[in-house]
Design a protein around this nucleic acid. Structure first.
Lengths: 235, 235
DNA sequence: CCAAAAGTGTTACCGCTACACCCATGG
DNA sequence: CCATGGGTGTAGCGGTAACACTTTTGG
């Protein structure tokens, strides 16, 4: 018997907006839903929260189970709780957004559902309110990455500045000056230059860098105006 | 019978961190809990989410019921979902923070519990994880108001720039230059000067201003660095 | 040697900070 | 007429944007 006899219980789920970057486009990872209602429709990665875990642990578990990845960038977005959002039972979902290196993602053998990357601007119809979740996640990504150096989470451990610049250009749909961009990023003192160049994309080659994760963690809340007028992107 | 037979349901609640400003100190509004467990202990304003409302509506309702206020600034903070946070039943709470004009608050006659303002840095022991909620709300308030002109929500409809400056000084525990502060705030073009001065706090008197709510809404996402180095306050 | 991308150096400008100074008025 | 808080003017500094120019190397 409940100790709160007058109150109703709800189902609690998490959904993850998983971002990836293929070098040209910003992508999201979608799956085909494995249970009714709407079985087979495209959906965000999600799942119910277990009795012994909090929502963040649930999101990390779902992500790990379905992508094989752990220690990914994961941030709570917001709660979606419209009474009718799930047509068959009242289910409240806490949405998280995740940033992963698209190359590290390997489809799990044990998966009994499809997962696929889609261009964020051109994805199939999604179940429930997942379209809203994606829109909100995109807005948050733009807002946050205008101030905080989080986008490198979408790149491999070693990456070049031109790669990072392309990523910013894709996220904000702008063109940036490569010369000023390099200086601005390097002036944050978070990157370490490696003794290796990427020669695939240019003749001269671009130096590889890696994030100094100690400094990154220490300065995680550092605010830098990487993008001018960030507000105009937060629609 | 549930359509998700293998899943457990949880209780869903909201809790509100209600900020106020008395001219000198930043305050939060606490109540004495009206139900078991921990009946009588100090707590944030909260309540269960009804079947016909989403969490934001629930937070607004709780606030309205217990303070008489509507149309207050209300923003989702995050979800608190540790399995054992409520010792008797699994209850997940979505925390919201609210900014209100402390003068508008009137204790409701119908209240069967105490509500009281406390200095944010010196409040009684709180139930469950409410202390964490308060800490997180304070951090978010600092972070957000460093970029967005939201703090005026804590002041009366007409206010002076010295009042607003005191508020910023209290929130960030810094001293600001009144001359530069005025210019910075006014350069956002969100305030309208009234034909009236506050003569209570100085001989010369300070002009009253009011927020132009049309411009405020239109520019809500405008980012201005009201506070230098905002990151150092986001602990 | 040319094209194309990476990266450096330099300049002009803008916005912010610091602070000298003026304003208004109650006592 | 002076003390006090409100407010304006302005000079200097630092960071950013713009862009001419150099470097590198495959074809």
């Amino acid at each position: 018997m409940s100790r709160y006899p007058d109150q109703a219980r709800v189902f609690l789920a998490v959904d993850c907006i998983v971002f990836g970057f293929d070098g040209k486009q910003l992508k999201i990872l979608l799956v085909q839903r494995a249970l009714e209602p709407e079985m087979g429709s495209w959906s965000l990665m999600g799942g119910f929260v277990f009795a012994n875990e909090n929502v963040e642990q649930a999101a990390a578990r779902v992500l790990h189970t379905r992508t094989g990845l752990s220690n990914v960038y994961l941030e709570e977005l917001s709660t979606f709780s419209e009474p009718g959002r799930d047509p068959v039972e009242r289910t409240v979902s806490v949405a998280f957004f995740a940033l992963i290196d698209i190359n590290k993602y390997k489809k799990q053998i044990t998966d009994d559902f499809h997962a696929e990357w889609f261009d964020i601007n051109k994805h199939p119809k999604l179940i429930f309110d997942h379209k809203q979740m994606v829109a909100k996640a995109k807005a948050r990504l733009r807002y946050k990455s205008a101030f905080h150096p989080i986008l490198f989470e979408l790149l491999p451990a070693k990456f070049t500045l031109p790669q990072l610049k392309s990523l910013y250009e894709e996220v904000y749909n702008i063109e940036m000056d490569n010369r000023n961009f390099s200086r601005k990023i390097l002036s944050m003192n978070l990157l370490e230059k490696l003794n290796e160049k990427d020669k695939e994309n240019s003749k001269r080659g671009a130096w590889y860098y890696k994030m100094n994760s100690k400094k990154y963690k220490a300065n995680f809340h550092a605010v830098a105006t990487i993008i001018p007028n960030p507000d105009i992107y937060y629609s």
